[in-house]
Design a protein around this nucleic acid. Structure first.
Length: 587
DNA sequence: GCCGTTTTCGGCCCGACTGTTTTCAGTCG
């Protein structure tokens, strides 16, 4: 079993224990072990036979070691099965909803027989759920928002886990089939959509008689639960959770066409098909074909678009939302790339809720070729996240300056400061004035109504010290619905006050939707693309933020962390009222 | 359940808020 699966079982055990009313510290021990496994940099199954090595992991004692060994050896856990047996169905699903914890989940299941999101939504709508103890009308209304989001989402999963699942399948397939010459994920994963309904893979072999080997391997991959269909060139299966995977195998000369066919949205594809027909060609899932059915050879994706009279279109924007008209006029925007990013302006260390010391985070950022990094630990109101009290912030500033000195990497002193429920800020102006960068965000009072929430954020933007608003909607992709807020009003206020908007790169957040970003681009908003890293590996998430920016048609000069360090510091040294004009003057 | 040790058991994350209710469950990263 991989780390994520083992970590998930431990997290589920913690929830079920809590639902059962077990000692909170026992619960926490399992939950901590789950976190610990998730942040390991190697597969824990590699050391599962070595109890001593397992014991070296902080928080691992005899009990946790037994659990990990049982899972690694058998893929199952007796304790989990016993707990599942003891507790009503649906607890693990219901606790995913913000506002519902293990206790309420058990009560809802026992008293009202609720075990699915659909049943929960129906129960709230009929008013039954609100009659449970400690559930208010207002609370139930908020829960309904989150539940409806879950119901709408269905079986779709977030882009983060979907990307991981796709690369796992590709790695296993490559390993089993040396015949594969080219392989790529297509569909919504390649477009970097937020939610993914299934995973589509295209691969190429040198000779068509090799494709059957690939199909055989694909339909017997380790996560195959049920094969839905297969022929010589295509196959589909679902995994244990009912999530679907498909593969199309083509020969090398048809690979680019298959990529084009498989990547764009349905309506993007239809437009391309029309253009192909106009030229006497046919675009199929096996590539671009001539009138006699033979593959139009010698092509890359770029050449294919050109053949259709179009400028090549980045995979992320193949949605038929205006890109084809611009491509026909050779007038597509030059969207940002990962290589344009020079620094990260949002990161956490173990001074607050990050998992790693400052030096590890700085080293990880350096390894990834970043030119500079802002260390932005939490402010006092974020108590659970161990937010820094004023004296600790001063010590933090000193530590950051010393670290910059010793590491040789330019670092920005900073904070991720809470915007309190009344719109006031968590540090004094005096403290804020001393920081290189202040990024501000909502972490509490997330159920406020839209006008209160909107005003709260705009109040914070009016501060001369608040440089960036981060993860504006506070949504967690597929888990927590966005806060209710007037996005247009906030974006307009950003331009008016000279405030930068963050595009949060965490694949769990994808906080601003692509259409919000595109709207912001039209309004002239400036962005920062930040990883919000709490762990060293999370710096690798930057690509998800960049992909979101591409989907929003963001060009590199609209993003402040494409600036070199000295330019960025010059930008931040200006009064906010002059910053947008400064950015306009960039080449 | 883990930890650190005073090697056997007490302490474990320091809070502030909401909503409901009068002691607590849940949330915020």
């Amino acid at each position: 079993m991989d780390n994520n699966s083992i970590s998930q079982v431990l997290a589920d055990v913690a929830v079920l224990m809590q639902a059962k009313g077990e000692n909170v510290f026992k619960v926490r021990a399992h939950s901590k072990a789950s976190d610990q496994i998730k942040s390991l940099s190697y597969p824990i199954s590699d050391i599962a036979d070595d109890a001593d090595k397992l014991g070296d992991i902080p928080g691992f004692g005899a009990g946790i070691i037994d659990i990990v060994q049982e899972l690694a050896r058998t893929g199952r856990l007796g304790l989990f099965e016993e707990l599942s047996e003891e507790l009503p169905d649906g607890v693990l699903e219901l606790v995913q909803i913000p506002g519902i914890g293990p206790k309420i989940a058990v009560t809802a299941a026992n008293d009202l027989g609720i075990s699915t999101y659909e049943q929960l939504a129906a129960s709230i709508e009929s008013g039954d759920f609100q009659r449970l103890p400690r559930i208010s009308k207002k609370g139930a209304a908020q829960i309904l928002r989150h539940v409806k989001m879950r119901v709408d989402q269905g079986k779709r999963i977030g882009i983060g886990p979907a990307t991981q699942a796709a690369s796992d399948v590709i790695a296993e397939l490559r390993d089993r089939c040396p015949e594969i010459t080219q392989i790529e994920v297509v569909g919504s994963v390649r477009r970097s959509a937020e939610l993914i309904g299934d995973i589509n893979i295209v691969c190429a072999v040198a000779n068509s008689d090799e494709s059957e080997t690939v199909i055989d391997a694909f339909t017997t991959l380790s996560n195959v639960h049920e094969v839905q269909s297969h022929d010589e060139q295509t196959a589909e299966f679902t995994d244990r959770t009912g999530f679907g995977y498909s593969v199309t195998v083509v020969t090398d000369d048809a690979f680019a066409g298959a990529l084009v066919y498989g990547t764009g949205s349905v309506s993007h594809g239809q437009q391309l098909e029309k253009l192909a027909i106009e030229q006497g060609l046919e675009l199929t899932r096996f590539g671009l074909l001539d009138s006699d059915g033979s593959v139009v050879a010698g092509q890359s994706e770029e050449e294919l678009y050109k053949r259709l009279g179009l400028e090549p279109v980045a995979p992320e924007i193949r949605e038929n939302t205006g890109e084809l008209e611009l491509a026909a006029k050779q007038a597509l925007p030059q969207t940002i790339t990962l290589g344009d990013i020079r620094g990260d302006l949002h990161s956490h260390t173990n001074w607050s809720d990050g998992r790693y010391p400052m030096e590890d985070m700085v080293a990880a950022a350096q390894e990834r070729g970043l030119e500079y990094l802002a260390i932005t630990d939490h402010s006092p109101s974020a108590t659970v996240a161990n937010g820094l009290k004023p004296d600790m912030l001063l010590a933090h500033n000193t530590a950051v300056r010393e670290m910059a000195e010793s590491s040789g990497m330019p670092l920005l002193t900073g904070t991720e400061m809470d915007i309190k429920p009344d719109g006031s800020l968590d540090y004094s102006d005096e403290l804020l004035a001393d920081l290189d960068i202040v990024i501000a965000s909502i972490h509490s009072g997330m159920e406020q109504d839209s006008s209160t929430m909107t005003q709260r954020v705009i109040d914070a933007m009016e501060s001369p010290h608040v440089d960036v608003i981060c993860h504006l909607t506070a949504r967690l992709l597929g888990k927590r619905a966005p806060v209710e807020i007037d996005i247009d009003a906030v974006l307009e206020a950003a331009v008016r006050t000279g405030t930068v908007m963050e595009i949060n790169a965490s694949p769990d957040r994808i906080d601003l939707r692509a259409d919000h970003v595109r709207k912001a681009v039209d309004l002239g908003v400036i962005f920062a693309i930040n990883t919000d890293s709490h762990r060293v590996l999370q710096f690798d998430n930057m690509r998800f933020g960049v992909n979101t920016a591409i989907r929003g048609w963001v060009e590199p000069n609209r993003v402040i962390n494409t600036l070199h360090y000295a330019e960025l510091m010059a930008f931040l040294a200006l009064p906010k009222s002059e910053r947008y004009a400064f950015n306009e003057s960039r080449g």
